[in-house]
Amino acid sequence: MPAVPMFTPRLMKAHAAAHYLGVSPSKLRTLDLPCKRDGGNVLYDRLDLDAYADALPYEGQAQDGRDTVCDSIFGVKG
């Protein structure tokens, strides 16, 4: 049984980075995230993955953070 690290590594291979974000490796390749190379390894920085996830809008929130049309119709304030 492989050892499971007790911490999240700073740099991750594509499969681990995809798992970290909750997407497939093929989806990860389409996200245009910055990556680093170490020899033949393509590595993703956890800080870049966190920044990508933090920039995603919450469900029902417009991309720019403003209220959506539905919010204004139902009187919801963001």
Rank of each mutant, 00 (worst) to 15 (best):
M1Q: 06
M1I: 06
P2T: 15
A3G: 12
V4G: 10
V4A: 15
P5T: 06
P5I: 05
M6E: 12
M6C: 11
F7I: 09
F7M: 07
T8N: 08
T8R: 12
R10Q: 10
R10H: 05
L11E: 15
L11T: 09
M12E: 04
A14G: 14
H15K: 15
A16V: 08
A17N: 05
A18C: 02
Y20F: 12
Y20P: 04
L21H: 06
G22K: 08
P25T: 05
S26H: 05
K27S: 07
R29I: 02
T30K: 11
L31G: 05
D32M: 10
D32E: 14
D32A: 14
L33A: 10
P34C: 06
P34D: 11
P34N: 08
C35D: 12
C35W: 09
C35P: 00
K36M: 09
K36Y: 12
R37Q: 13
D38N: 12
D38M: 11
G39R: 05
G39A: 08
G40N: 10
V42N: 10
V42E: 15
L43W: 05
L43I: 01
L43T: 06
Y44I: 06
Y44A: 08
D45N: 14
D45P: 00
D45T: 01
R46L: 09
L47K: 14
L49A: 09
L49S: 02
A51Q: 11
A51Y: 07
A51M: 02
A51F: 01
Y52E: 01
D54H: 12
D54F: 07
D54C: 10
D54V: 05
A55Q: 10
A55L: 00
P57T: 08
E59T: 08
E59K: 13
E59I: 07
G60P: 03
A62T: 11
A62W: 04
A62D: 13
D64T: 05
D64W: 08
D64M: 14
D64G: 09
R66C: 11
R66H: 13
T68P: 00
V69H: 02
D71F: 07
D71L: 02
S72T: 11
I73L: 08
I73K: 01
I73S: 02
I73Q: 00
G75K: 09
K77S: 15
K77D: 12
G78E: 09
